[in-house]
């Protein structure tokens, strides 16, 4: 699966197609308008990206809209949400502790372990 995705993105044009779709869900024509390649070529690239599990196709009326396949992104988001939640809590604990005046301690107390 990862190998498929890497292979799909090895092509620079296909990578651009992927980045445009990642930016916002788009029909084929809209992607083609922003790249110096033909519409059939963009369709072909999107097909490869879809087979690699990188983008999803959604049919809206007669249009085919492509969007990022977000299953993988959700994993990444969950990871970072948890990471920053914990890190900001640690930041709060540390900065408030250092800032708190402790009259009984000498001024260098905050440098102590």
């Amino acid at each position: 699966m990862i190998a498929d995705a890497l292979a799909a993105l090895a092509d620079p044009t296909r990578r651009q197609v992927f980045e445009l779709v990642a930016e916002r869900p788009s029909p084929v024509g809209q992607v083609a308008d922003r790249l110096p390649v033909s519409r059939p070529a963009v369709s072909q690239h999107l097909r490869v990206l879809r087979q690699a599990g990188l983008v999803q196709e959604e049919r809206i009326g007669t249009r085919h809209v492509y969007r990022l396949d977000t299953a993988g992104l959700e994993i990444l988001r969950a990871y970072f949400e948890s990471f920053w939640e914990r890190s900001l809590a640690a930041f709060k604990g540390a900065v408030e502790q250092v800032n708190r005046p402790e009259p009984s301690d000498p001024p260098t107390a905050e440098e102590a372990p």
Binding site: A5, L54, L76
Partner: peptide, 12 residues
Amino acid sequence: LDRHGPGWESMR
């Protein structure tokens, strides 16, 4: 986060 490209599964 999408700039990290494919391979999100490796995070798991």
